[in-house]
Simulated scan of single mutants.
Amino acid sequence: MMASALHKSIESASGREFAGLARNLFGNVRLEFGAADEKRSRMVSAMLGACRLTRLEVDRHIVFGEHATAGPDDPDSIKLLVQTEGDACLDQGGLHAPISADALVIYDPSRPYMLTNSTPVRQLLLQLPRHALPHAAIERLTRPFTAHAEYDGMCRILLSLMDSTMHEIGHLDAARRSSVGQTMVDLVRTMIGADLQQARPIANPLDLLLQRIKIFIESELARPDLSVTMIARRMGCSVRYIYRAFEVECLTPSDYIWDLRLQKAAARLRDAGGYAGEISGIAFALGFSSSAHFSRAFRHRYGLSPSQWRKARIS
């Protein structure tokens, strides 16, 4: 039972399914194989707490990331790519960054990029939540950050840890994966922010995550399908980390969403005409599935129906 549960948390794809899973895990990317053999493509991916680690074996191809984080379902994470075999280069922000064996590149996929894999490649891709890195480090990623294991000890350690983790991933439970993921985050923070040690203390990463979640929720409040899973995907972390971020609020993420919807509905009703059509419009604009659902939730929250609230002009 335990082994079965562990393997269920690992995602994999090969051949024609490769591109679909790539878009699902990495955002709105476009892959072009040209005359290469797409059927030779394979990937294995797993969450490591707030991070995602993926092993890819792919024939030569090009990845276009013009709109990698364009939609609310696209993961908003910083990417770290380790090249273990083959040759590739990343073009972003006017920088042409060659990637060779035992080299890594860290880049911000929210900025347009093109990754050209000119030979068949073996790669390890680590996705780190944006909030896991110092703000000053994120600001630097207008252009890719590169390192090579031959010259950088941290790069060697990280490469070895990522490689060994992929070999053992099927034997690690959630707690151990989370611990390994945090170690990788710490290594990356040290690599990219070594000269930031004298900077002012960085805010609690969970506080930063909570701020970003709240901004995202407010921007997507009209979506009836807004869910914790969608939020986790957009933030590039696990559902468990979303719940951890909300512990300080003493609310679940879902409770926060519905409470925010009702607060906004109450505010809009003050300026509404109060007739059924307008009240229904407010309900649907805030993600409620029906007028009846809205009325029940509103009465439970405020002790009055939406129309009674409007007439009473309660502030």
Rank of each mutant, 00 (worst) to 15 (best):
P306C: 06
L48Y: 13
A35C: 14
N117M: 15
T116R: 12
M47H: 13
E38I: 04
Q123R: 04
Y113K: 00
Y275D: 05
A174L: 14
S179I: 15
I78A: 07
R143G: 02
E168K: 14
G193C: 01
F294I: 01
R23I: 14
S307C: 07
T165Q: 12
T252F: 02
G170C: 07
D74S: 09
G277Q: 02
E11D: 12
L25Q: 12
R42G: 00
S179G: 14
E168N: 14
S291R: 09
A245L: 01
I78S: 03
I282C: 00
V248T: 09
L80R: 07
E249C: 00
I279F: 01
S110N: 00
L104W: 10
L81C: 07
M43S: 05
A199Q: 13
E218C: 08
A194Q: 06
A276N: 03
H171C: 15
P120D: 10
G153L: 11
R130T: 02
L187H: 11
L221C: 06
G236S: 08
Q211M: 06
Q308L: 10
D259V: 02
D91C: 11
A147C: 05
L159E: 06
M43T: 06
N24D: 15
Q263L: 06
R60C: 14
A232W: 11
H67R: 14
M114I: 13
G303P: 03
L196S: 05
L187E: 06
G236I: 07
S291L: 07
F294G: 00
A276K: 01
S41V: 03
D108F: 02
T69L: 10
S110C: 00
G236T: 08
A132Y: 01
R40Y: 02
D259W: 04
H61A: 06
V44I: 09
D259P: 01
S227H: 05
G273T: 04
L124C: 04
S219W: 03
G71V: 12
R40Q: 06
G49Q: 10
F26Y: 04
L104I: 13
T229G: 15
A147T: 01
T165R: 11
L95E: 04
L80E: 05
D74Y: 03
A272N: 02
N28C: 15
D195K: 07
R55H: 09
G303E: 00
M2R: 15
I62E: 14
K8H: 13
E38D: 04
E278N: 01
C155A: 06
L21T: 09
T116E: 06
L196K: 05
E218T: 08
L95H: 03
S305I: 07
A147H: 04
H293M: 10
L210K: 02
A103L: 07
E57P: 07
R42A: 03
A50P: 13
M43N: 05
S12W: 02
P109W: 04
L187Q: 09
R240V: 13
F294A: 00
R122C: 10
S315E: 14
M166F: 09
I99L: 15
I279C: 03
